[in-house]
Design a protein around this nucleic acid. Sequence first.
DNA 1: GTCACTGATCACATT
DNA 2: GATCAGTGAC
Length: 656
Amino acid sequence: MTIRKYTLHPVAEPGTGIDYPKALNERQLEAVMHGDGPLLIVAGAGTGKTRTLIYRVAHLVEQGVPPASILLLTFTRRSASEMLQRASVLLDRRCEKVSGGTFHSFANLVLRRHASAIGFGENFTILDRADSEELVGLMRHEIDVAHKTLRFPRKETLADLFSRAANREETVAEIVTRDAPHFLYCVDDIVRISGLYREAKRDRNLMDYDDLLLHMATLLREHAGIRRLLSESYRHILVDEYQDTNRVQAEILRLMADAHDNLTVVGDDAQSIYSFRGARFRNIMDFTCDFPNAHTVWLEENYRSRQPILDVTNEVIARAAEKFPKKLFSKRGGEDRPALVSAPNERTQSLFVADRIVELAEEQGLALSEIAVLFRAAYLSFDLEVELEKRHIPYRKFGGFKFLETAHVKDVVAHLRTVDNPRDSLSLSRILSLLPGVGKKRSADLARKAFELASLGPVIDALAGMKKSDEAGRLAALLSGLTRDHGLAVTEMMARVLAHYRPILEARFDDFPRRLKDLEHMESLCARHGTLPEFLAEITLEPPTASVGDMVAPDTEEDYLTLSTIHSAKGLEWKAVFIIWALDGKLPSLRAADREDEMEEERRLFYVAATRAKDILAITYPVNIFERATGTVLSTPSRFADEIPARLLPRYALID
DNA sequence: GTCACTGATCACATT
DNA sequence: GATCAGTGAC
């Protein structure tokens, strides 16, 4: 995000030392200068928590701590590398040597060395969400579901239940009881499938996202030698966005800090928005229980937003049920209050937002990169996107479907995965099913054979024997070439797979020119990676953030507007922010209505959205929206906006 | 066994 | 709108 670079603070020349008191306020300074031992930084939105972390990293390095023994864990890998880059500008290039990444990427790194200690091979394959759903689907068919008449959960639902159980360290039965009691009638079958799923992953040397964390925790817990080794290697651990960690992650941290207790966590309980992934905002409140000698620092001065915006966001969060009490303040004054705007329908909402964006850009000279439109769910921006395209306003959308999840990209990746891990029968049966005349049965049989022998040999022979099918012969040639020629560069492998896949793509999809662009983009991605396993782990752990259509225009220099889900907007800021579809039933989502804890999370979500704004904030909603699922008509603004006094948040209505 | 068709059912956020 | 189970034609 280029946006963050604009907030870079100019500091002394490298080598001349950092003028900490000049660059930081008193509280930030206290956090940065904290010596050894556990440290909790409770940092409200926009209070400079990233800055504090960066200075703390630089300070540690300056104090002589070897950079490689500092571990910086963040929510996305991109934010880790950005922070380390900024630390490098601050101090010197030593900061680039600091280890940084997400919990998942760090776990991947460790497990690639030590997986055998917990009964896995080091060349395990990482399953993304869709892969794990597919495998669950296979297991679902393994058992005879006796309840033909009653509804049995679909594979997506099952995978979701298993994931919840893993992230919260609860049993599948407990999760079903609490989150899906309507499936209690078949809870035994669900538990059986979860067992089969677990075994299938172990047999095939596969790990899903949750496994990376779970196995990492097991490794640390049960192998004191490895734990000591790791804990000694990373003498200082810093964690960003601590409010969005789950139980397993908290345990990993406790174990990692075993040898030294040098653990710094930064977070804001008011911005915890990932409970569906098992995040416990209570982790941040429990930190001082886990580490009784922890020092706590509070950051409350906001440098981002003008006071009228803070007046609104403070009201929103003041009504939260459970929180660390804090009230943010800003020296940035201003007259303009945020606005709550109703539109008679979605179309008018889109027209209004597009009009205002043009106005801000043309009349007030705001760059498009200083403006963002935020929403609860990815589909809510479709209508606006049509309008933006009509007016030729360039934008990029974050959140929603990733291009990695599209069929053609998955096809290509499956070829590479098969070569990397012949026991990955998911990928193998996927590419076999692409052949004409090969369906479920035959692909599964062949994949099983490859699995048993841990080799593609028999599959290649079988394919070569299918004389009638030209396609089968081509696939055989491709696979045997890729497995035989050792030491091939990833780019070369990709080029061969693409050459093979291209005719299949053209035969299967009407819109193949567009999809071909995605594949070309992927080709350019793999140029950055040395080995095949590295590349595969990379694209699964850190898939390109922009959604599908944006692959077409990746030119970076163009000024563009940001459309984003609120979740994907975490940690970012813009001068002007529009929150669309702030309609009660959409934000908060209707599905949160009967659970108080979920409603509280919706409140925090609204809070995160509103606190992204520096100067201008507009909250809009369409009325008379018919919800087919429930048969209700939604017409009231989000309760989180509605309960704010009009003197702080004035109301406006658009009329057609 | 494979494939193309039908009608019923459920739909958020992401590493 | 996508997915799933069931059906019948090759």
